[in-house]
Write a protein that binds this DNA or RNA. Structure first.
Lengths: 216, 216
DNA sequence: TCGATTAACGAACGATGTTCGATACTGGAA
DNA sequence: TTCCAGTATCGAACATCGTTCGTTAATCGA
């Protein structure tokens, strides 16, 4: 059982979600496909449990994180830890948000984030919304990364730069009067870093949260 | 060609992403599956174009929206319009973020949002990040909705309430010392509204943005 | 009239999730 | 020891899906 999950996660890590098939998994485990169905009722369940398995590792990293006297700073660190872990496992974000059973490690992670909001002057509802907003920023941004790069993923980093430059070039050719914004950010887009983009979005949400906690 | 896209969108609206198969689409159009491949090279492309087709309708709604003298208020209205449209088409969010070609209507929508940031005192990079953050909140939250409710979707609204209550009940049974946060928000979770949750997350981001625009 | 382009069609292929009957292997009850 | 019920394993077979491909019409300018 444990072996099934670790093998599934390994397949997902190595070649993405399309690589996780029951036949590939059986071959890796040296068994038949029917055997896997004895442990897991369906692929959906397999994905859910593999996700929870991977979230467990993230949770461990978040829990051993030292706490400061600023709850919002702690929330920031936790969100960054979560995001960085998802950058290494781009498939995670897609299944994390689709998690039908909010049980297990996801729930514990949720709790861990929520505990920091308990240290802020907020209503329960505000805390609930705050944690949802933060996880939304993390998962939403991470899910973006898992998707982009169609075939250019086959090569190294240079192709990503060229890929973005090509887009920026297309944008610059657009009518400047009709697309003033796209023109202005073309340069920034061409050299944008996904992690910076995430950090900026997170900072906006945390700034809003701090404001909410400080105003009566 | 146009007929293919509208039929594809209709299938997606009626029964979700799993209902859009080439055979079902061909049957609806009264043609063969080979014919569709003459217009569209692959299912990925079909999804991309169908998404862009649907985004076109949203864009029209956003563009006819009157502008006020507060750019952030305008951004809020646009984001809400976008979110509401995605609640009716829960499949949209999943493909909107995966949009490999950020061309067409998605780009125009992006531009429309970005133009409001041009009215704020920000650097180009801040504007770029702000628009990304706002679309991230919309799409991230909307993608959540498209996923939840496993089989309960077969029935009406009452089942959703019962579904949430069951979760809340499970949470209340957890150890209160180990899960203080989950305990506190169980009630709010049981009766939470997805739209309220989105509005709260959006408000945090916009508050952060306003702060950023007002501080030198 | 002829050739080329455009358009339409569905059988066939390979891959995938899933089912199912057959077959062992265990450990206690008789 | 014998028997049987549960535990576990296996892979052929089925249905469905995206996709390919050879075969036809239909249309139109030369």
């Amino acid at each position: 059982m444990e072996a099934v999950l670790t093998a599934a996660v390994a397949l997902l890590d190595e070649a993405g979600q399309s690589a996780l098939t029951f036949r590939a998994l059986a071959a890796r485990l040296g068994t038949g496909v029917g055997t896997i169905y004895w442990y897991v009722p369906s692929k959906d369940e397999l994905l859910d449990r593999a996700t929870d398995h991977a979230v467990g590792a993230i949770l461990a990293a978040v829990e051993e994180q030292p706490l400061s006297d600023d709850p919002i700073a702690d929330l920031r660190e936790m969100a960054i830890t979560l995001f960085d872990a998802m950058m290494d496992r781009t498939w995670l974000a897609a299944y994390f948000m689709r998690n039908t059973d909010v049980q297990g490690n996801s729930l514990r992670l949720y709790e861990k984030l929520g505990q920091q909001t308990l240290r802020l002057d907020l209503t329960p509802r505000q805390r609930f919304h705050a944690v949802s907003a933060i996880t939304g920023v993390v998962v939403g941004t991470a899910a973006d990364l898992g998707a982009e790069l169609p075939q250019e993923v086959l090569s190294g980093e240079t192709n990503r730069v060229e890929y973005l430059s090509r887009y920026a070039e297309t944008w610059r050719k657009l009518d400047a009067a009709a697309f003033p914004f796209v023109h202005e950010i073309a340069d920034d887009f061409a050299e944008h870093d996904d992690r910076d983009q995430f950090l900026a979005a997170l900072e906006l949400t945390l700034a809003g949260l701090r404001l909410q906690a400080e105003t009566p």
